[in-house]
């Protein structure tokens, strides 16, 4: 059984189709990333999976429960950490955890035990009795994660868990997330705008654009879908001959030539480069310089959404909410 299975999941707002018949599965114990521009349907998808938004058509199974017919069961079995900081600033970290526990109907004595363990886990024990308004951004995010784990969920939904945080804190947050996966086999569905994080930590990624899944796969597969690595050669000798030789080899992709330099995309650069060198040398062509580069997630994202992250537009409410999150993260 898979942890999440979306079946023709669709949401329409009037004539706008926010999410358009998407189908995907997330396996148990997987870190699954959702990428996509604002307004692409990412938040609506998470909203539906976490029972915040009712689908117009189709459904999804979360932990085996139907999000439409068994919403309450779904809610009991998942943890949700939203992009916004939802802890109450006027209360302490401890009080927030106890509030979260009571929302899940967890008895007080059990809740106290769990809250202690969770605070320990996210290293907030010493700050437990401080008001949340005095927390730093990283501390707030860690508290949010602890709150999301109070009901021992099998699946954790994380919406932009590292937005606005500094590099070190981002790394720390990701180390908690990967530990949840490796030690407890927890399934994690995460969205992020930091493409290099998705690349580094996600087992699989779905890129959503205009309400549809544009591409789904492991980070490696996604990058390879652009044609694998890019090999750049600078040569001395007959460049046309070199081109011919390389083109005749197995696994050679698109090629471009400028002056004495050849660029080509190949499936596996590390494997191909020595072979190319060998063939060229055999034919008396000298290679001055060779380099292998990999396409990054940025290029993958560009290819499937047609835009870079910076060009995005969003409505003012989303913009304010993002600004507020970032401001708190930096406090």
């Amino acid at each position: 059984m898979s942890a999440i299975k979306a079946i023709n999941l669709t949401k329409r707002y009037g004539t706008l189709v926010a999410v358009d018949h998407i189908n995907f599965e997330v396996s148990i114990g997987e870190i699954f990333g959702l990428l996509g521009p604002n307004g692409a349907g990412k938040s609506t998808t998470i909203g539906m999976l976490t029972t915040l938004v009712k689908p117009t058509e189709g459904t999804a199974l979360v932990n085996g429960y139907d999000i439409v017919k068994q919403a309450s069961k779904v809610r009991q079995s998942i943890g949700v950490v939203l992009q916004e900081y939802t802890a109450d600033e006027d209360l302490t970290g401890w009080e927030n955890l106890m509030l979260a526990a009571s929302l899940y109907g967890i008895p007080k004595n059990v809740a106290k035990e769990r809250a202690k363990e969770l605070l320990d886990m996210v290293e907030l024990t010493s700050a437990a009795n401080k008001k949340v308004e005095n927390y730093s951004g990283g501390m707030r995010r860690r508290l949010e994660i602890a709150m999301g784990l109070i009901n021992r969920p099998r699946i954790l939904f994380l919406d932009e868990p590292t937005l606005g945080l500094d590099v070190q804190t981002r790394a720390a947050i990701w180390s908690y997330i990967t530990k949840l996966k490796t030690e407890y086999n927890m399934t994690i569905l995460v969205t992020t705008h930091y493409l290099e994080e998705a690349d580094a930590y996600c087992d699989r990624i779905a890129i959503i654009d205009r309400g549809k899944i544009a591409r789904i796969g492991t980070p490696k597969e996604l990058k390879e879908s652009l044609g694998g690595d890019i090999v750049t050669l600078q040569i001395v000798g007959d460049i046309d001959l070199a081109k011919e030789i390389i083109a005749s080899m197995d696994g050679a992709g698109e090629m471009r030539v400028a002056g004495d330099t050849i660029w080509m995309s190949v499936k596996d650069g590390g494997y191909m480069a020595p072979k190319i060198l060998e063939s060229l040398n055999k034919n008396g062509i000298k290679v001055l310089k060779i380099s292998i580069t990999q396409p990054t997630m940025d290029e993958v994202y560009m290819k499937y959404t047609g835009k870079s992250l910076r060009e995005e537009q969003s409505n003012w409410e989303e913009a304010f909410s993002t600004m507020r999150t970032i401001r708190k993260a930096r406090s």
Binding site: T50, T51, L52, S72, R75, Q76, I78, V80, L82, E84, T86, A100, L103, Y104, G105, N151, F157
Partner: peptide, 8 residues
């Protein structure tokens, strides 16, 4: 929104 994702 956070509240609405809990079984309360």
């Amino acid at each position: 929104n956070k509240l609405l994702t809990t079984p309360v």
